[in-house]
Design a protein around this nucleic acid. Structure first.
Lengths: 186, 186
DNA sequence: CTATACATGTAACTAGTTACATGATTTA
DNA sequence: TAAATCATGTAACTAGTTACATGTATAG
């Protein structure tokens, strides 16, 4: 499981509260591991029990009090252990593919509309990633260490979104051509 | 949720037992929606309760008796309804990305080994998909209807595996170059 | 006075994984 | 006689989603 480990990485980079972590998971880390605040609070609680992180209560006057979490020695060990452990690529699951395969059992126009929608979403995310790439990593060839690692993960996101958008294009073209042909014959 | 709907598609194409479905999910359908036999049996039970499928008990002499499931009118309606319903692309989760981002907190060689491993797995799956493409769809331009839909889903799998393998290559190159540079400096 | 940011949680539910359990027939 | 195929399940657990719940401070 990677949520604990994604949290460990994030807290190694900078200690923070559950709320702060949840915001990071809405952005940077969330680009390759999504998590809601409910999940994060629950997981932090378990991580404290496991001794992977410790919580410092911080009193604030301008805002509600918060608990700031930081990684313990045991947490650092666990992260290194997990990195060394090999796992298989996750099982593939894609409901848009199920819809494409199912197209004959429903309205093909509904599938086309869904493809247009997903295509737009993937291109939107691609824009966000490209903007981050341009702004944060203007000279990729000179990167090293942690900033290189961050860049490479971003590259994975760019590849994934571009690949999905391209696939949507391929399917849209093919389904529309097929619709045209079927119409000609009728 | 797509498992019910993936099962409905599979049973529309051909009625079958839970066991047969489980085998199909190890192959064709499983390429875009993975499911274990336990999950399939449980889901079939719920789908009978929902009235989406009906089960016929088939007595066999050469093999254990089985229940053959087929899609009901309500199941067909549900499939069409689900196809028409729009959903957002699923939240992205990739533990290899977490490991790449975490590389500085463990052994970079472990991350390299894991990348090599995933790269090999993705290329293996790619080989399987390419073989199916060549064997089942030798003339893609002439495809239409259901066989076109099947082909397009396979294309998605090919794109995904190729994209992931390419990303592994990019990350391996970059991390090795970075390792070399760090060694030079020391 | 309304919305947003800050801050933390519980409860119920849905989905998926892992381990266990059983037993017949066929093939090497 | 050992393994593979056919055939169906339960139980316990892990992971993730959705809905509910509460309250302060600040900016427009």
């Amino acid at each position: 499981m990677a949520l604990e480990h994604a949290i460990l990485v994030s807290l190694e980079e900078r200690s923070g509260s559950g709320y702060e972590l949840a915001r990071r998971f809405d952005k940077s880390i969330g680009y390759f591991w999504a998590a809601s605040h409910q999940q994060i609070y629950r997981t932090l609680k378990r991580m404290v029990e496991l001794g992977w992180v410790s919580a410092d209560h911080v009193t604030q006057s301008e805002a509600p009090d918060k608990k700031v979490y930081r990684v313990s020695a045991a947490g650092r060990d666990e992260l290194a252990r997990w990195i060394a452990e090999s796992t298989e690529p996750a099982a593939f699951r894609n409901d848009l593919s199920v819809k494409v395969r199912a197209a004959s059992y429903g309205d093909v126009d509904d599938v086309l509309a869904e493809l247009v929608h997903h295509r737009r979403r993937h291109l939107e995310r691609l824009d966000v990633y490209r903007a981050i790439e341009k702004h944060d990593f203007p000279d990729p060839a000179r990167l090293s260490g942690q900033s290189l690692h961050q860049y490479l993960v971003l590259r994975g996101g760019i590849r994934a979104e571009q690949g999905l958008a391209d696939w949507c294009d391929e399917v849209l073209d093919a389904l529309r051509r097929d619709q045209g042909r079927t119409k000609d014959r009728s």
